[in-house]
Computed example of a mutant assay.
Amino acid sequence: MSIYPPPLDAAQGNAILPFTLDVPQAALDDLAARLARIRWPDRETVDDWSQGVPLARMRVLVDHWRGAYDWRRCEAAVNGWPNYRTAIDGLGIHFLHIRSPHPDAMPMILSHGWPGTFLEFLEVIGPLTDPTRHGGRAEDAFHIVIPSLPGYGLSDKPIATGWTVERIARAWGTLMQRLGYDRYVAQGGDWGSAITRAMAVQRVPGLVGIHLNMVVCFPPPDEDFTDAEAQEARDVAEAHKQTGLGYSTQQSTRPQTLGYALADSPVGQAAWIYEKFQAWTDHDGDPEQALDRDAMLDTIMLYWLTDSAASSARLYWESFRSAFGNAPIDLPVACSIFPAEMRRPPRRWAERVFSDIIYWNRAARGGHFAAFEQPATFVEEVRAGLRSLR
């Protein structure tokens, strides 16, 4: 049973409508019934995560899901911030919009990726919008907009092909214009990084600079990989290529086939995402060192409750082979490299694509889900990275 929001009425035009997340109890009861009749696979034949999520770890996560997890807690946290939906290019787009109490705040749109959601930004909303209450300065304040990608969670699912990274970038430009922002910055990681870069390539109206926490750049043809940074970048990329691309190959070639399994099995959906939380976060072997169980289950629940497995995977089918190219960007670019990220290029590789790098820093801790894992560090990186654009 899905809680997928009903499509917006075309007659509503460009209206921005308040939205409240209120999952029917029947959807939660359906989930409980499915979790009560799990058919488990047999145990892996290794003693690590190399074959996927270990059976014992999955059982622990599901036991917590069934016994201690409370979706209504997450729902209340979401509804504690202003939620909206508006129609853009034929789709209803969900977003959070939080204006800073500081009138001179810089507007910023933040974009998530897969298997992320807007939830990964909840802990950074307060410090970004109201820094004086969180150890910052008034001049560090942002007005922030956090949309859900098309096909992800509370935004509409495209019913035809064509919703590429570039189209989403144009939609985000429309959203910021509709909200009245004529000068703003954009931030993103994962697909959010690709969307943010596409906004810069297109020079969407009002965009003055971007911040990335996943920086995909490629070595020059004559790279000799003699320095430590280049060696690290090569080794990390090669390891991901060898053992980490199974999910993206499936999602970029046969997302619909995958969807049947994940739409029907909550444990299947959970394992598909839990594996990435383990592989892409910064920890010493236990993903719960980076994210607690409830935080991981909040994300899993949003995918499950909205039946977003296939619709989110289709973004890979649409854009995976073209999203992270070498299109030059001459707008100001700030880059934060986190130590457990799947791409960690040297600055000189990025300079081949970004002609105006205004900030480059390597954070001490954190991985692919930077705002989710290390919210305080993420906030400081965004503040420092974009400070010169105020």
Results as ranks from 00 to 15, higher is better:
228 A>D: 15
303 Y>P: 05
155 S>Q: 09
210 I>C: 07
327 A>V: 01
58 M>W: 08
269 Q>N: 15
286 D>A: 01
275 E>R: 09
59 R>T: 10
367 G>Y: 08
233 A>D: 05
246 G>I: 02
265 S>A: 12
111 S>Y: 00
295 A>M: 02
198 A>D: 02
44 E>I: 12
154 L>H: 14
96 L>D: 00
26 A>I: 11
375 P>L: 03
299 T>V: 15
142 F>V: 01
183 R>M: 00
37 R>W: 04
110 L>P: 00
131 P>L: 08
97 H>K: 02
317 W>N: 14
42 D>I: 09
129 T>V: 13
74 C>V: 13
227 D>M: 02
365 R>C: 10
269 Q>G: 10
127 P>A: 10
239 A>D: 13
34 R>S: 14
129 T>D: 05
258 L>I: 06
222 D>M: 06
188 G>R: 03
4 Y>G: 00
180 G>L: 08
235 D>S: 06
260 Y>C: 03
368 H>W: 07
200 A>K: 04
272 W>I: 06
209 G>W: 08
305 L>H: 08
325 G>E: 10
19 F>T: 10
5 P>M: 02
146 I>N: 10
197 R>F: 03
202 Q>N: 11
120 E>I: 05
314 R>P: 04
305 L>D: 08
153 G>K: 02
132 T>R: 11
336 S>V: 07
247 Y>M: 00
321 R>M: 14
348 R>F: 13
207 L>N: 04
102 H>Y: 15
109 I>G: 01
47 D>F: 12
144 I>G: 05
237 A>V: 02
226 T>H: 12
383 R>S: 00
126 G>I: 03
110 L>H: 04
334 A>H: 01
263 A>K: 04
346 P>L: 05
186 A>E: 09
271 A>L: 06
167 R>M: 12
165 V>G: 02
287 P>T: 02
217 C>G: 15
114 W>H: 09
144 I>K: 03
103 P>N: 03
291 L>I: 08
158 P>M: 07
89 D>W: 02
300 I>Q: 08
274 Y>M: 07
127 P>R: 12
287 P>Y: 13
12 Q>F: 00
287 P>M: 12
163 W>S: 00
77 A>F: 00
148 S>H: 02
236 V>Y: 01
288 E>T: 13
7 P>M: 07
101 P>E: 08
248 S>E: 12
184 Y>V: 02
59 R>Y: 04
370 A>T: 01
36 A>M: 05
325 G>V: 07
302 L>T: 15
1 M>T: 12
101 P>R: 06
355 S>A: 13
7 P>R: 12
36 A>Q: 14
121 F>M: 03
109 I>L: 14
238 E>F: 14
299 T>H: 14
12 Q>L: 14
50 S>K: 10
11 A>G: 14
146 I>H: 09
59 R>M: 13
222 D>Q: 14
279 A>V: 01
275 E>A: 08
51 Q>Y: 13
194 A>L: 04
189 G>D: 11
241 K>H: 15
382 V>M: 13
23 V>A: 13
149 L>G: 09
258 L>C: 01
333 V>Q: 07
9 D>G: 01
147 P>Y: 09
388 S>G: 04
183 R>P: 01
29 D>W: 01
93 I>R: 03
14 N>A: 15
36 A>W: 09
39 R>K: 14
52 G>Y: 11
